[in-house]
Design a binder for these strands. Structure first.
Lengths: 344, 344
DNA sequence: TTGACAAATGATAGCGCAATCATTAATGTG
DNA sequence: CACATTAATGATTGCGCTATCATTTGTCAA
């Protein structure tokens, strides 16, 4: 059973500090928010009083009076996903040492839920907002466009961000990966995809682009599911691919989880990678480069996206309109490793 | 550049709704917070007015007036870690559909940072608090004990929670895993550990317990690091173990990341698992059961811990003192798979 | 019908802070 | 030295909501 802690430190207010320091309440408020406009003498007195009383401002009162909070909202489609875990890490590293907080909303790949969450977040008067991609509902787009705070759309790259955006071209990345399979001597590449959110769809299109250009496009080699991505799913999809198109000689996976599954299933079936079969993943998660054989993958700037998204918001809060590059393409990098090294 | 959205939906207040509905402001407030004490007629009128105006309460004003928020704080030592990702997922599933939010604080395995974050969270007047383990600083412990909201300590199991706790016995779990290695016919088991937070330490103790009892305790077979855990680190630690104690014939890893690294490095060195060498992981993450060979691991109730921690808090908010089992041991399960199947 | 009681509703005040405008002190200029 | 200008500080008010207490209305037994 809990005790009631009515005498907790929260009961000290600005006025108490002001009395202790012998100044007015508003001077205390200013000392905290913008010390540079308070005289050295007042500031010292106030700081001493704050330290002595252990004062800490009440964020609710501050929010009510100023119509803004220190919360930065972050809307992600998944928390399980390794990809968004890295973004989240970048975001948290980015706000480290600032007076801001991150509040994460998980919309589970549902645009409707995203719209709901957006409303919930907006009524909290956030200092900034980070959302995933460009595929919001029309209403959600309006909300983003008219939001009274900086907004960053992350992970994707499109023509017209609501406010700011940072990400990379998924379709291009998939093209590079697929082209690499062909360049490595594989003739009949397949595609495995799970979840198939808009960014996954873009990757599939990139794969198709290259296959069509090389005139080797075959729908039977494309195996996708709307279910979540994981290693077990990679094994299943690979089995399905082999049963549908047994002569497939390589595969580009929507992400590394699936690719690891393929690697494992190949090992179980004594299919030799890369000699008999090439495997390319996507995202280049840590485990991929420590597989045996080491896995070829497309390295994506997930951490940087999170980190820089926060920086854009902080800059924009400091002086609105100051961010120059409001639609930022961070690119990707194809990391060639042994799992596609047929020509060695 | 952003437009100023001064006419955003946020500008509608309780008073506006009250006028529209022809009742007083406080009746509107009650209709939202506890509809059961408002007459059917009033409620209908108010609900209609809310719908018509698109009203949404201002959480800051509510927090200021009521001295409590709808925020539940969650303090975790890491966001990268698979383990806490599952906890977070459970927590988010647990608050789904309630009026509460989760705010995550990442204290990066630093007890001091945890204490800071605790203070920051407490001044927001959270509705509840979830913290990791029992290893807070003395001051942080006091804060938890006197917090004016339900508190749950998760992931560990100890004698005296500050308020409530849910977790499992790490030392017992490590004992079970180590005993399993011996029972499987391995004679010289080693231990690999990364990060070595308090719960990792407890697991090491469990390992030592069993080795001492079997009179095979050898410090040379214990290889640990304070660096973060990942697959690459598993490979490195395994190399170190083999160079220090080449006759080691099995290993219990602090967690699955390391164990996967061992599996990979063993494959590279043509060490056959499980015949030549046994590998047991910890946590039983999804990828572990899809490795080749499938990995023996200790399944831990991470998702359930998160989910039930939230439930405990919600129950406790509803009626303080109502939660019966305030110190809950969810146990663990040793999942025996091929990676330790020497005696087949 | 009357009084007693519960259910429903309202009036008032205040939560702790920051925006606004007013005031005072400090500094510079001719 | 008078005056203008800037820097520093303060008094007042209100943000939107809920707690508290007071009041009204409805219900029932005597």
């Amino acid at each position: 059973m809990k005790k009631n802690a009515d005498l907790s430190p929260g009961s000290i207010t600005l006025v108490d500090v002001a009395k202790e320091a012998g100044v007015s309440a508003i001077t205390v408020s200013r000392t905290i928010r913008s010390p540079e406009i308070v005289s050295e003498a007042s500031r010292k007195k106030v700081e001493a009083a704050i330290a002595k009383l252990g004062y800490a401002p009440d964020p609710a009162a501050s929010a009510l009076a100023s119509k803004t909070t220190s919360t930065i909202g972050l809307l992600v489609p998944s928390l399980t996903n390794n990809v968004f875990a890295d973004v989240v890490r970048g975001v948290y590293d980015g706000i480290e040492g600032t007076r801001y907080f991150v509040q994460i909303g998980n919309f589970r790949y549902s645009a409707l839920k995203e719209e709901d969450l957006l409303r919930v977040f907006l009524r909290q008067k956030p200092a900034g907002l980070i959302v995933s991609g460009f595929d919001q509902t029309a209403q959600a787009c309006d909300l983003l466009r008219t939001a009274p705070c900086p907004v960053v759309q992350i992970m994707d790259f499109g023509p017209e961000p609501a406010d700011m955006a940072i990400g990379f071209e998924h379709r291009d990345a998939a093209r590079a990966a697929t082209q690499h399979l062909l360049d490595s001597g594989y003739k009949k590449p397949g595609f495995l995809g799970a979840r198939m959110d808009p960014r996954s769809q873009a990757r599939l299109e990139g794969f198709k682009d290259v296959c069509r250009a090389a005139e080797i496009m075959d729908e039977a080699r494309i195996v996708t599911t709307r279910q979540p991505s994981n290693v077990g799913m990679g094994r299943q999809l690979f089995e399905l691919l082999l049963s549908r198109a047994p002569d497939t000689d390589a595969v580009f996976c929507n992400n590394d989880d699936l690719a690891i599954g393929v690697l494992m299933e190949a090992q179980r079936r004594n299919i030799t990678v890369p000699t008999d079969f090439g495997v390319c993943g996507f995202n280049d998660i840590e485990i991929a480069r420590n597989m045996v054989p080491e896995m070829t993958s497309v390295s994506t700037p997930r951490y940087d996206i999170g980190r820089r998204a926060i920086q854009m918001i902080l800059d924009e809060i400091k002086s609105p309109g100051s961010v120059e590059d409001r639609n930022c393409n961070l690119g990707f990098e194809l990391i060639e490793r042994s799992s596609t090294l047929r020509r060695s």
